Amino acid sequence: MATNQEDVKLLGPLGSPFVCRVNIALKLKGIECEFVEEDLRNKSELLLKYNPVYKKVPVFVHNENPISESLVILEYIDQTWKQNPILSSDPYQRSLARFWSKFIDDKIVAASFKSAFTIDEKEREKNIEESSEGLQVLENELRDKFFGGEEIGFVDIAAVFIAFWIPLVQDVSGLQLFTAEKFPKLYKWSKEFVDHPVVKKSLPPREPLFALYKGRYQSLFNASK
């Protein structure tokens, strides 16, 4: 356990899926953390101090040592606090977890978000196709209750965007990108995952996030008329 709240800080906006990943890992490990809410339109001096290169969130700070990039942070947390491991001790299984987590970021996160928030129809269709193909690959890969087996692991945490943010984006845009009919195993996984007590406590409040995205969506498409 961290000795006190000053030892561990997490900087970022509450509504970020990448910040949420770190929150889930910390709660699974039972690590107390000081959360520093960031407004990305007006980045704090603290954020610029701890991540001067990319100036992005999340930034995780342990004993004044800053770490950036959510997947890198997850590995650091797992290696630093050994209880409730989220990565396998087997090198091959660890490499697979890294591969699938990067796949989620490269093939699903950006494309599914752009599917809803892109005006150009051809571009939107391209993103829908890319994200659907990525979701199908994950559907075929899922063999247990969670990607980590019977317990939540590294890939499950990386996939929080699919479980929580894609349904939110769907509700905002009316897209039917991720449904039980198209992806039955992955959809069932998503329900189990967001209902997990630790995950449920780590997710941001849905309604303010929905209102924020809805406002962006309406502004985008109203401006294009």
Results as ranks from 00 to 15, higher is better:
Lys102Leu: 00
Lys82Gly: 00
Tyr92Met: 09
Glu34Ile: 09
Tyr92Gln: 02
Cys20Trp: 09
Glu45Gln: 12
Glu125Trp: 08
His62Thr: 14
Ser115His: 11
Arg124Thr: 04
Leu138Thr: 01
Thr118Ala: 09
Val22Trp: 04
Tyr76Gly: 00
Leu11His: 15
Lys55Pro: 06
Leu71Ser: 02
Val72Met: 09
Arg124Asn: 05
Leu11Trp: 13
Phe18Gly: 10
Glu123Asn: 10
Val19Trp: 13
Glu75Asn: 10
Lys49Cys: 01
Ala25Asn: 15
Glu129Asp: 11
Ile104Lys: 01
Glu37Thr: 03
Val72Gly: 01
Lys102Asp: 03
Leu26Asn: 02
Val57Tyr: 09
Leu40Gln: 14
His62Asn: 08
Ser16Thr: 13
Ile77Tyr: 05
Ser88Pro: 14
Phe103Cys: 04
Asn63Gly: 02
Gln79Lys: 09
Asn42Glu: 15
Glu121His: 03
Ile108Trp: 04
Leu71Thr: 15
Pro91Ser: 06
Ser132His: 09
Lys49Thr: 14
Asn65Ser: 10
Tyr50Met: 15
Glu121Trp: 02
Ile128Tyr: 11
Ser16Leu: 11
Glu125Phe: 09
Pro17Ser: 04
Ser44Tyr: 13
Trp100Cys: 03
Tyr76Lys: 11
Thr118His: 02
Glu121Ile: 08
Arg94Cys: 06
Arg98Ile: 12
Pro91Met: 08
Phe103Trp: 03
Lys29Trp: 03
Ala97Val: 12
Ile24Lys: 07
Leu138Lys: 00
Lys27Phe: 02
Ser70Asp: 14
Asn51Thr: 13
Leu40Val: 05
Arg21Asn: 08
Ser68His: 14
Asn127Lys: 08
Glu34Gly: 06
Asn51Glu: 08
Phe60Ala: 04
Glu34Gln: 06
Leu28Trp: 03
Pro66Met: 14
Asp106Met: 15
Asn140Thr: 14
Leu11Glu: 11
Arg21Val: 04
Glu129Tyr: 07
Ser16Gln: 13
Pro17His: 03
Asn84Trp: 12
Val61Trp: 13
Ile108Thr: 01
Phe113Trp: 09
Pro91Ala: 03
Ala110Cys: 14
Ser95Leu: 10
Cys20Lys: 05
Lys102Pro: 03
Lys49Leu: 01
Val22Ile: 08
Leu48Lys: 11
Lys114Val: 00
Gln79Met: 01
Pro66Ser: 04
Val53His: 02
Ile119Ser: 05
Leu71Pro: 14
Ala111Ile: 12
Lys114Leu: 03
Gln83Ser: 06
Ser89Phe: 10
Leu47Pro: 05
Lys55Ile: 00
Ile128Asp: 00
Asn127Glu: 09
Ile108Leu: 01
Leu87Thr: 08
Ile31Arg: 04
Gln93Ile: 07
Val22Tyr: 02
Glu69Asp: 11
Val109Lys: 09
Glu123Lys: 07
Arg21Thr: 08
